[in-house]
Structures are given as C-alpha cells and as structure tokens.
C-alpha cells in the first residue's frame, strides 16, 4: 500500500493506493448515496460555487418565497447569499453549518 498526496482544486488529500493483480483480483468499490441525489417531486436549490456553509436561514417545514435568502456559503473570502428561485416548503436540508459543499451540490429541496 502506497500513500500519495494529491492536490485537487487547491485542497491536499492523502490517498492510499493498493496495487492489484489484474487477472486475479478486482477492486470492490463502495458507492455511497450522497445527500445531493435528487428526490422526486422537489425543486432544488443548488450551490453556485464550492465553499463552506456559514449559516442556514430556514428549517425543514418552513414555507419559502422566491427570492428569499435560505443559506450563506463562504468561499475564498466571499460570503454568498443563496436565494430561492422557487416558492415552496422546505422538504429537505442536505447540509449543516460548517459543511463543505461542491459547486452544484443540492443544498435544499423544496416541495
């Protein structure tokens, strides 16, 4: 097992890599369903940039109006106020304060 340092989008990760025999073995991959998978019948509020969740302005069950600020994400010294593009009720919040988010992650789902 070798450990490599890999830099992705400015962040450094330590990655363990195991050499395998191509004939004898296959790598088993575990797919985790991330919280950004779309739920049926919901409108999604997505992250416009990668960053960290600074504040969540709504709770599950709240009624949200189009244009209402629902979350603040911080990235590269920018505080990004995320507004809803839809009217709706908050069905699901997929992040917590302090969560790291990627560009296009689904943050909140409205029904």
């Amino acid at each position: 097992m070798k450990i490599y340092k890999v830099k992705v989008n400015g962040k450094v990760y330590e990655v363990e890599v195991e050499a395998i025999d191509e004939v004898k073995e296959t790598i088993k991959t575990e797919t985790k369903e991330t919280e950004s998978v779309k739920s049926e019948g919901t409108n999604q509020i997505i992250a416009p940039i990668a960053g960290k969740v600074l504040d969540i302005k709504v709770n599950v069950g709240d009624v949200v109006k189009k244009g209402q600020t629902v979350m603040i994400i911080e990235a590269m010294k920018l505080e990004n106020e995320i507004q809803s593009s839809f009217d709706g009720r908050v069905a699901r919040i997929n992040v917590n304060v302090g969560s790291d988010v990627r560009n296009k992650d689904v943050l909140i789902e409205l029904e």
Binding site: I46, P48, K77, E79, N80, E81, I82, Q83, S85
Partner: peptide, 25 residues
C-alpha cells in the same frame, strides 16, 4: 489574509465581499 489592511500592526481597513445567487451568482 484574507482581506484586512494592517498598518503598524493595527487594522485600518476591512473588506466584505458578498454575492447574491440563485443557481448562479
């Protein structure tokens, strides 16, 4: 870093960059 201006080890200026976004900035 990230965006304070310091003179003689004291802060003289602050910057706050904000964005308004829906699915894009």
């Amino acid at each position: 870093w990230p965006n304070d201006v310091i003179v003689n080890n004291k802060k003289i200026c602050g910057v706050l960059l904000e964005a308004v976004s829906k699915n894009a900035i």
